[in-house]
Design a binder for these strands. Structure first.
Lengths: 210, 210, 210, 210
DNA sequence: GATGAATGAGGCTTCATTCAT
DNA sequence: AATGAATGAAGCCTCATTCAT
């Protein structure tokens, strides 16, 4: 087992196998994916997989870890590059939707099989992923708005993350009934709802918050 | 599991087995769950499972179907009973969070293993579930607001559904770092963000960067 | 278990089941035939089969026993009714071929699955059947020819029984390449070969027997 | 089992398994033989059997195919090496009886479980086997006798094949009541009956054929 | 007596893992 | 290091048998 914990320190061959694992997982899911499928997809022998990973569980956990890191990095960078809260959120929303288009297998593993349990470790990785993302979003909110933000940044971050995941999932599920537009349109309209909210009920005053 | 009513003509014994399947799936996930586990949980023999279901895949697909219907009904009823849009959304948000508390296994199967691929049929069921929920929420928006609603109801419905799922998932994942409050507090605060939105940047016309 | 050893003393319902068993065995063979198939074919419940037979092995052994007895009786009567050796042999040959036409399932079980081992008892029944038939044919030879018969009657009986079984099997296998004629033609021509033999080699004297 | 030559490109390991399968089938029959029995007999792991054969049905069908080919080749060579019709038939008869002694398991599978239905393919193989043998015998008759042969060669071939199979079966069933002599005696006496036939009835003229 | 729902032992088959090459 | 043939534990599923109705 040469594979270190650091993604960046993963040997090229191990990375080839991990990428193959992600692609196969995206198509067949955790339950149906066999080590041999991954080996074939990676163009190596079955035994070679075991040179780089301890077990099926290890391989799949690291594959999810890889997918998680790729996705998390993209979102984090988008959030950090924003010139305003709205800009940051729009960038990350757009980045996620584009990621679903360009790296569909990776996105599919993350959104489609969230805690599909190829062993408990996968669950832990995804809990960490959520926590990290919520933290990053809340930090972005505080950075741009600070005390001016009227709501609990954590709650707001969760609302945004939910909307982002849901929009991405809709894209992945490729449902032709919904979201027929471009990713840019989808990001813009979704963001508009998030920024403005649903608004107070115009007829009666009952939609006022207390 | 409160639900014991006839579901689409499923026999009582079959329902017992399905409920057991949901409970076991919630704990062990699709991959690790064995037919024998389900049989033991249901208090029947292994062979009996095969009297009512064609295969492991059939059983698990129907278990997800059952969980989906239970959850969808609860959300639909909450949306329909609302006296205003805010009330409807708050009711459904609260209902979902409470459902996660009282029927944690069912919720876990739905949120934790979304499209975990116990066969392709599970994926279809969950796509249907999303579409149905988005439709119900959009209908609720149109019913209470009609033309007054400034945004695309479908987009807004997706934002809300994402926030609802994410809040429920956070609850399920039982992450002690986030959301420490009661379900009522969580529902109220989450709803406040959704209704008001993040708001415009207070200082200048747009958000200021740091 | 009401079923006595004597076929003639078998209760009507047991006989119905046995006949059904023979029909199903003929189609699916020993390995693939399930008790439920037999019950359905007999038009009774699965449990009823166990009212009349101890086990699957018991049922199948008795079914083969029934088939054997039906076939053996027909051959024995044909042999006994012959007015000469040739007549007796022709009658039995014809009877066997006709039996294959009219009672194909029974013949199929006997010829197609001879010692197919639905338990060791089936093997014993078929050994007994062969012994009985060889004995009956040898007795017929002695009765009509006595000391005039130049060969060992047992050997001759075996040759005849082999030819008879082979002709019947060819009929059962329904091979369109061979034996295209009627059963009467087949019986007549087969018998002619048996009575006359292949004859001495005309060229040299080497086909003379010593 | 003497035969170890390549059969249709079967790998040596596959042949080892096939030979083991034949031996186990001979003892336990189709119904009672388990894959694990074959694996143990072959000295390999259970999984190894599945490296070389698709299923139990595939394995058993090929085992019967192997047995059929071994037996058919022996008979065909005996027929071809004969210097006269009588010699050819005697050689094949003797070869068959000796085969039953030296390769009892193979013979047992062929004679004892003829069309025992380990799947429909077995039936096809045995139909082919019979057709091939009848053809070879008929060809031998024509070769040595040509137009001098008074009877239909196909019919005669069937009579001979039946006698040969029956004699071999008697040997296999190991019935101590019959055929106590050596295989040479049995072959000689059986052949004498076949060559000379039963003869005309001496007393009256009724045994004359029309 | 007749039934068929329920059962679980046991078989076929898969596939993660090993290891000799 | 790389391989893939070999393995056997483990799981899905079948079906002979039972037994309450």
């Amino acid at each position: 087992m040469k594979c270190s914990m650091e993604i960046d320190g993963v040997s090229p061959k191990a990375l080839t196998i991990l990428e193959a694992a992600v692609r196969v997982l995206a198509v067949h899911g955790f339950e149906a994916t066999k080590i041999e499928d991954v080996a074939r997809e990676a163009g190596v022998g079955k035994g070679t997989v075991y040179e780089y990973f301890d077990s099926k569980e290890d391989l799949f956990a690291r594959a999810v870890q890889l997918a998680t890191r790729m996705y998390a990095r993209i979102l984090r960078e988008a959030l950090e590059n924003g010139t305003s809260l709205r800009d940051a959120l729009e960038r990350s929303l757009l980045a996620s939707l584009q990621f679903c288009e360009t790296s569909r297998p990776v996105a599919q593993v993350l959104l489609d099989n969230p805690v599909g349990r190829a062993g408990a470790s996968v669950r832990e990785w995804l809990i960490d992923f959520r926590r990290e993302m919520v933290g990053a979003i809340a930090r972005t909110i505080r950075h741009h708005r600070g005390a001016d933000f009227a709501r609990d940044p954590e709650i707001a971050a969760n609302v945004f993350l939910g909307a982002l995941n849901n929009a991405s999932l809709a894209r992945i599920l490729d449902d032709p009934e919904e979201y027929k537009g471009t990713v840019e349109e989808m990001a813009r309209e979704t963001l508009a709802v998030i920024m403005d909210g649903f608004g107070p009920d115009p007829a009666r005053g009952e939609d006022r918050r207390g």
